[in-house]
Structures are given as structure tokens and as C-alpha cells.
Design a protein around this nucleic acid. Structure first.
Lengths: 206, 206
DNA sequence: TTAAATAGACTGACCAGTCCGTCATTATAA
DNA sequence: TTATAATGACGGACTGGTCAGTCTATTTAA
């Protein structure tokens, strides 16, 4: 019975954690770390505050768990999507598209990422960059390959170009989120992609 | 004597306000609205808390005053700088350069702008966009002129292109600020400008 | 019957905003 | 010129409310 017990226990724990994380993500995204009350999260999750503290050490732990989960999901999705494509430029396009779709679905998350950087500078960045780098390294390889193939200007440093792309996407999503998602992300992103690509690509007709 | 008195009083008031605003900008930028204590601002300004409340109605009023002052300065600088140039493309370049230099000098301000949008959404945005639009309208005219002259792709909508540019700049400055300003903004911005322009400009050699 | 899970009352720290006494400067009077 | 009064800038102790985290009584499950 011990094994079954452990499984059940694990199930309950995971279920509760997910339940709390889901609510917490919404609330933290809306109000930011400092203005969020743990009471509200507990209430919306239909739980008592004590229960929340059963599953998370403290408010910070809860917050960082959200960040962790979000980044992990995003990274996995992007890497999987890229793997589906063959050509370097298609891989990059696919990465942009996936990134965009992720936030179209989880739009509130962008706030957590951008919003709280100063409060948690080191910690978030540590977690963020840990995942981010795996992710960037893959994309960097793709960039380099595209450069070898003569598709992307040789003088552009992949790391910086990727940073610029990420920044463009992040802040565009952020603005889009703030202004009430009045237009479709996909629509505007085609323009961003065009600006980004036409600037980056070697001219074809030389 | 009354006139002199009024002048003196006004001087003192302005001086104190500036003194408090300067400190408050630093502290709010570093900690965000919710985590900033008015006590700390007072302390760093070498004043008692009561004195701070003499000059500002409450914490919110103080915060919004910072935002106001910053945006007003930025707008004035950009418009003045643009007025110095004749050619549309030079005007745009100059605007980018000025925007960048402003934040290189007042790097902490970008945090206040980006960071607190969710807490104060409506209020900040109202103030922000009030100034922003005067500013954008001017730039938009320049864009349109450049399109008439055949310098910029006709199919690009100026408003959207300006939004993208602003977003690129903002988030680049933000990241730069967060990561400890390890490189010169001007340096990276030349790359951004290149990406932005080469993507935007009609090809010259057709 | 017992052990784990849960709720929410409670505590102590924290902090925005107030209130009042002090002090410096300027005006008034002798 | 000097003594006294009035003004108002100022500091910081204080208050009341809020909220993270704890503790215990109660519920649930086995």
C-alpha cells in the first residue's frame, strides 16, 4: 500500500500546486508582487491561507515558482517547434511564431516577466537566463548556420541580434497586453518579422 | 515687499519640490511604487516625512509628479532636436539619438515608465499618451514626408512603425539598464538603427 | 482511532498619512 | 536699535490599517 499511498499523495500535492499556481499567476500578473495579497490567492483558489503555506514556503517561493513554470513551458514549446523545421530561416520564423502564440494564450505572463525584474533582479534573472540560454544557444546555432549559407549578413553578431529580436517581441507583447489586446498579435508580428528580416537578410539579387 | 516675498516663497517651494522629486525618482526607480517608503525618500532628501507631505498630497501624487516631469523633459528634448535637422531621415535619426541619450543620462526613469504601468494603468497612460501623441504626431508627419519623397516603403503604416521603433528602444534601454549598463547604449543603438532602417528604407539602387 | 489536510483567527511588523511642538525668520513696536 | 510677536517651515512621534506568516481547532480520510 505504501506505493499507492505515495502516488496518491503525490497526485494531491501536484494538483494543489497547480491549482494555486494557476490562480497566483493571474493575480500576480494583474497586481505585481508587492500589491498582491496571499489571502486573495487563497480565496480565489477556494483554499485557506494556511493551505497555501503548506504547498509553498512563502510568498517569494510562490512567485518564483510561477516564473519557473512559465519559462520552462515557453522554452520547451519553442525548441520543439524549431525542431519541426529544416531550413534555418524557417526555424527562426517558427520560433517567432511560437513565442507569439504562447503569449497570445498566456498574455498575463509577460507582465510577470517584465514587471518584476527589478524587485527580484538576481533571482528571476538567474532562473530566466538558465532556461533562456539553452534556448538562445540553439537559436544561435541556427543563426550561424544561416550565415554560413549566406542568408544572413555576416557582420551581425548572432547573440546581439537575438537579444534585439527578443526585446522587440517582449515589449511588443507587453504593449499589446497593456492596451487591451485590441488587435491580433499575429497580424502585427508579420510586420515586425518583415522589418527584422529585411534588415537582417543578405540581398538575394546580387 | 509683497512681491519679493512671493518670489522667495515660490523659489523655496520649487527648490524643495525639485529636491524631493530628484530623490524620489531614484528610489521609486529602484524599488517600484509599492515597495518604496516615503520615509526613505524623506531621509535621503534630508527632510522629515511631514515636510514631504507639505509639498505633495500623498505618495501617489509624488509618484505621478515624477512621471510627468520625466515625460515632459523627454518630449521637449526630442522635439527640439528634430527641429534642428532638415531632412526627414535625419530627423528620425536625431530623434532616436536623443531618445537614447536621454535615457543614458536618466537611466532609472525607464523603469518608472515601464515598471509601474499596471499599477497605475489609466493615470500614467493618460499623462504619458498626452505628451506622447504630440510627439508622435510630429514624427508621423516626418514619416509621411519621407514616404512622399520615396525614401520609406509606402505600404508601411507610420503609426505602427513608430510604435515598433518606440518599443524596440524602450525595451532595449530597459534591458540595458537591468543588466547593469555593461555596454554603451550608443554602440548598440547603431545596430538597432541599422536593422530598423535597412528594413524600412526603399532600396536605393533600383 | 489516528494521522494528515485544511481553514481562518491571530500576531507582530511595517508603513502611509496626521498632528503637534519647535525653531528660524521676518514683521512690529518701543 | 532692540525687544517682542507673529508666521510658517519643519521634524518626527504617533495612529490606524494592512498583510505575511504562524498556530491551533476542526474536518476528512483511512
Amino acid at each position: 500500500m505504501k506505493i499507492t499511498d505515495k502516488v496518491k499523495k503525490k497526485d494531491l500535492t501536484q494538483m494543489r500546486q497547480k491549482q494555486i499556481l494557476d490562480v497566483a499567476t493571474r493575480v500576480f500578473s494583474k497586481k505585481g508582487f508587492a500589491s498582491t495579497q496571499v489571502d486573495e490567492i487563497a480565496g480565489l483558489a477556494g483554499l485557506g491561507k494556511g493551505t497555501v503555506y503548506r504547498y509553498f514556503k512563502d510568498k517569494k517561493d510562490l512567485f518564483l515558482s510561477i516564473v519557473d513554470r512559465g519559462i520552462r513551458n515557453l522554452k520547451d514549446l519553442v525548441l520543439e517547434a524549431m525542431a519541426e523545421e529544416k531550413e534555418p530561416l524557417d526555424k527562426i520564423k517558427k520560433a517567432i511564431e511560437t513565442y507569439l502564440k504562447f503569449f497570445e494564450k498566456h498574455s498575463y505572463l509577460i507582465r510577470v516577466f517584465i514587471h518584476e525584474q527589478s524587485e527580484f533582479q538576481k533571482r528571476i534573472q538567474k532562473r530566466y537566463y538558465q532556461h533562456y540560454y539553452e534556448h538562445v544557444n540553439k537559436i544561435e546555432e541556427v543563426f550561424k548556420k544561416a550565415q554560413t549559407l549566406g542568408l544572413i549578413k555576416k557582420k551581425i553578431k548572432p547573440k546581439l541580434a537575438i537579444a534585439i529580436l527578443t526585446d522587440m517581441l517582449n515589449s511588443f507583447i507587453y504593449t499589446w497586453q497593456l492596451t487591451g489586446q485590441k488587435y491580433s498579435l499575429s497580424e502585427s508580428f508579420s510586420l515586425i518579422t518583415e522589418i527584422y528580416f529585411t534588415g537582417i537578410l543578405e540581398e538575394k539579387d546580387k
